[in-house]
Design a binder for these strands. Sequence first.
DNA 1: GAAACTCCTAAAGACTTCCTAAAGCGCTCG
DNA 2: CGAGCGCTTTAGGAAGTCTTTAGGAGTTTC
Lengths: 236, 236
Amino acid sequence: MTRAARILLVDDEVPIQRALAPLLRSRGYEIDVCGTGREAIDLVHRHPPDLIVLDLGLPDIDGTEVCRRIRQESSVPIVVLSARGAESDKVAALDLGADDYVTKPFGPEELLARVRVALRRVFNSDGEPAGRIQVGDLAIDYDRCRVIRGEEDIRLTPKEFELLALLARSADRVLTHRTILKAIWGANAVAQPEHLWVLMAQLRKKIEPDPSHPLYLLSEPWVGYRFSTGPADTDA
Amino acid sequence: MTRAARILLVDDEVPIQRALAPLLRSRGYEIDVCGTGREAIDLVHRHPPDLIVLDLGLPDIDGTEVCRRIRQESSVPIVVLSARGAESDKVAALDLGADDYVTKPFGPEELLARVRVALRRVFNSDGEPAGRIQVGDLAIDYDRCRVIRGEEDIRLTPKEFELLALLARSADRVLTHRTILKAIWGANAVAQPEHLWVLMAQLRKKIEPDPSHPLYLLSEPWVGYRFSTGPADTDA
DNA sequence: GAAACTCCTAAAGACTTCCTAAAGCGCTCG
DNA sequence: CGAGCGCTTTAGGAAGTCTTTAGGAGTTTC
């Protein structure tokens, strides 16, 4: 059960939109298009993409600023397009959080290859985007924002699902409290660790068979939390 | 607190070695250099780097093949350098596992920026290297602040882990008490040597097979402590 | 408008960390 | 030989981390 990777294409020039959107769709990606930085930042919240292709020459906000703002709240890969080939432009964008920088004019296959490279890091190792993760008797459905345990269809709130999805995507690896707080509440938000404690408690109450002896959502004291996919953990 | 990232530079052209190695060193990276694909593959095993800068034009093995072989065994980021700017070359290298592709001639600052981008993914936000380091028969897991000795998974407290990580990074070299105190409790803190004594005792109790006859955490009287990787110590 | 829901705030309690204190061991030097 | 110093080791308690529950402000839904 795989789902298509969702790519947000941010470019105000219609000819480029006309060229790139169908190209990307033809490779099986699901494409959202917008033409301004403001829309882009908004869409990252409302309809989080798996990757962003960002043209630096936007009519409203400067492209590097868009890059910076997105990076404050999300670690989604950003591939920058730009007509400016100067070294200083590249360095600025890359240091502000862009993952790649492609100078116009560019070959379509090169762009596609660089998109594949960036997506390789988002999705699991088999290269196929995973719309669903099955762990034990827990199934996480990213498409529907749902979790199914056995026959039971568990409804989560947006924040609960975000937390679960975040941890499950980095399954078996520890995410620090800081990382989680930044990912869910945003970098500049005044998120306190306490927020995370209670969210975690609610989530455990919903998906753990025995909330006081978690199977999936394990705490690594003084470090962070970890989503466990199997008996790779130490004793209770 | 943080260790320098180790970069393996693979290039057979001496002028490029002469230019890049000092440049990278000047930015605080630790650099290994080699000139053939065979050496590169060997070094990835023997002295695992945090990032590889790989010139495609090697005398022995084709660069893309080197890329593929490294990728079979390691997920270390690879930044490719090449004189060939054809789209098909770029696509081939990127699809075989390269993380970036820089065409010669390139500006030094652009290369540095792309190196920073690739390293961003290896090191977590605290600047600590992600993953594991193997020292002697002790595996230090930076992700989970844990130590694995044989089958045993030992949980350390933050301070204990910091002390161990500090000493292990300078394995087989003596760190003075002052150095350790400053590193762990901060330069201006009113840290007393006594704090270090008891922390060391607790750490030894956890990771030493026989805490009163330490194998790893050796004390150098009147000087400091040393992490020993094996029976290379000069006892009396 | 009322009801339902999400999410923040507060607080009690179990548990862990780590500073402090103090006793003990071995080495060096008077 | 004994005093002094550097280091080891143990123990207790203040401070901190994390779990869990409950209540209420703000928002959405009908």
